[in-house]
């Protein structure tokens, strides 16, 4: 007959398995993204093994499932934290014999999804992705300048650098947020989040990004005017420098007023126009 410790160990092992499956499922949170309730099915898909485990009563379980069919939308990476906090709350609710405060669960979801989406969008979408993409582009121009046409031997590293540096931040953040959500209560999590210097980190990344972009721009101009590209596109050095500089400044203003598609097609149109004039 198994002892109390064996039963506890088995329970603990099963819960770890459930937590791990929940973490893997977070990668599919947007799999059934819909216009009406956005990520609701994805949220329920992640929470499903946990709800099935903690609710033994059929009616209570059904109530819990239907509670999470409502609207849910946040940044997919930051959702891990909300899921873990909600799971903890559901665990507490399942232990309450009188039902507990069920509305609190949805309130917590509603309160947290907006701010976390804003943090996720500005940190991952607006800073980290830009930075990592430009580190790759910087390396590309560095290789072009260093090795000329021989950079072909090293070029396959560049996309791998992009994927590696992005995911080496993204996957641990997802894991840590889920771990934090399960480990601590809601107040502690909010305290930890608010004490984390997102703004400071964002500013550091932003500054690095500016440096990397300016570095890449300098390397690109070095390649165009002093590198392996011997032929001048527009006749002579002065004409080339003038056209490149004007186009660079113009593209900043075009981006301000128009879309990326307009910028793209207008550049093509200008290039064809210049060629038509025989320059």
């Amino acid at each position: 007959m198994p002892g109390v410790n064996d039963v506890n160990n088995n329970m603990g092992f099963k819960m770890i398995k459930i937590y791990f499956s929940m973490f893997i499922k977070t990668f599919f949170i947007q799999a059934l993204w819909n216009y009406e309730r956005l990520q609701n099915v994805g949220f329920l898909f992640i929470l499903k093994p946990f709800l099935c485990k903690v609710y033994s009563d059929d009616d209570k379980r059904k109530e819990a499932f239907l509670r999470h069919m409502g609207f849910f939308n946040t940044h997919p990476y930051m959702a891990s934290l909300i899921i873990a906090i909600v799971a903890n709350m559901e665990k507490e609710l399942s232990k309450c014999k009188r039902g507990g405060k069920k509305s609190d669960v949805n309130s917590v979801k509603n309160i947290m999804e907006g701010p976390l989406a804003a943090i996720g969008d500005s940190f991952f979408g607006g800073t980290l992705r830009y930075l990592v993409a430009f580190v790759s582009i910087f390396i590309l121009f560095l290789f072009v300048n260093l090795f000329g046409n021989k950079f072909i031997a090293y070029n396959f590293w560049i996309p791998l650098v992009f994927i590696f540096f992005y995911n080496v931040v993204h996957i641990p953040v997802r894991f840590l947020l889920m771990f934090m959500g399960f480990k601590f209560n809601m107040e502690k999590n909010i305290f930890l989040l608010s004490s984390f210097k997102f703004m400071f980190l964002g500013k550091i990344l932003y500054c690095s990004e500016v440096i990397v972009v300016i570095g890449a721009l300098i390397l690109y101009f070095k390649f165009l005017f002093f590198g392996s590209l011997n032929t001048r596109l527009f006749g002579n050095d002065v004409c080339d420098i003038l056209i490149y500089s004007v186009l660079f400044v113009l593209s900043i203003f075009v981006s301000w007023k128009f879309s990326a598609v307009f910028l793209f097609y207008s550049t093509i149109f200008v290039c064809v126009g210049i060629s038509c004039l025989g320059i």
């Binding site: 830009y130 430009f134 972009v213 890449a216 721009l217 690109y220 165009l224 590209l229 596109l233 527009f234 056209i243 490149y244 186009l247 660079f248 400044v249 113009l250 593209s251 900043i252 075009v254 981006s255 301000w256 990326a260 910028l263 793209f264 550049t267 093509i268 200008v270 290039c271 064809v272 126009g273 210049i274 060629s275 038509c276």
Partner: peptide, 19 residues
Amino acid sequence: GFQKAWYLLPVCGFGMVMF
């Protein structure tokens, strides 16, 4: 014109990034 665009489009890309 397309040949020229091959080298000019990255410059526009930098403009978009600066914006």
